[in-house]
């Protein structure tokens, strides 16, 4: 655990669903405080990559190192990794039977054995940051999608993660809700959070990303700073993708 380690390193990672190859020879390095945006057509394996990082999916080839420690099958190793990596899902996945506050305090109370009062303060602090502190007593079903997603971000932050993973966080939102969520993410990036974000929000990518990764058919096709990626994509596949996704903007 020294500062020379990259935060995350993937070496030749591969993953198959039956005969279908979801990831093939994926190599990535992510430094501390680096913001990475992964884009690509649907089914290109971008979600699978970040789901392998906290082992919601198991990789079958290669190595994944988080802060220098390799991800193994050992349950304790996996749970430790998950506590250090926050994840935000496309469909929020808040716990509907718990109040907003309880959604946030569950992790710290159970995993970090934090006293209830302290967990509550922590939760309120992060709810403040995502600008919904006044709704702490509500239930997820009573909130809009945008609010729920901001709660989900706060829930992940409550575990004080070293790395945040965003899996298409705005894809399930009504258009008028998107900017509120993106604002929170931009702020988070400004605070120096290390993050990987799978998204189609190219405006956000241009503004925030240090590194753009373009994937297609389970492979990384292109890696580079956004200025290069958006202006001079080197591969035909990336050029095609960009022309399709940007044609309506």
């Amino acid at each position: 655990m020294n500062d020379t380690n990259p935060m995350l390193e993937m070496r030749g990672v591969g993953k198959w669903y039956g005969d279908f190859c979801a990831l093939y020879d994926v190599n990535l390095k992510l430094q501390r405080a680096e913001r990475m945006v992964i884009c690509g057509p649907s089914g290109s394996g971008k979600s699978t990559v970040i789901r392998c990082v906290n082992r919601l999916e198991e990789h079958q080839a290669g190595q994944i190192l988080l802060d220098g420690v390799e991800l193994t099958e050992d349950t304790r190793n996996i749970e430790r990794v998950r506590r250090e990596v926050g994840m935000v899902f496309q469909h929020f996945n808040l716990f509907p039977h718990l109040s907003i506050l309880d959604n946030l305090t569950l992790g710290p109370i159970r995993n970090l054995k934090m006293p209830k009062k302290e967990a509550r303060e922590l939760a309120l602090h992060y709810l403040e940051r995502v600008r919904i502190a006044e709704q702490a007593g509500k239930y997820p079903g009573e909130m809009s999608g945008g609010q729920q997603q901001r709660v989900a971000i706060a829930r992940a932050l409550c575990m004080k993660p070293k790395l945040m993973l965003f899996d298409e966080p705005t894809s399930a939102l009504d258009p008028e809700m998107i900017s509120g969520v993106l604002d929170v993410m931009v702020e988070l990036a400004g605070d120096g959070m290390t993050m990987i974000c799978v998204t189609h929000e190219m405006g956000f990518a241009r503004e925030v990303a240090d590194t753009m990764v373009f994937m297609d058919r389970g492979e990384i096709v292109e890696v580079g700073p956004p200025s290069e990626f958006f202006n001079n994509p080197t591969s035909d596949r990336a050029r095609l993708f960009l022309s399709q996704i940007l044609s309506h903007h």
Partner: peptide, 20 residues
């Protein structure tokens, strides 16, 4: 998604079942 979200915050299988 409920399993995944609960696991993603690092809950053990027992806690995922009991709390979520």
């Amino acid at each position: 998604g409920q399993w995944e979200a609960a696991r993603a915050i690092g809950l053990s299988r027992f806690n995922v079942l009991r709390d979520v």
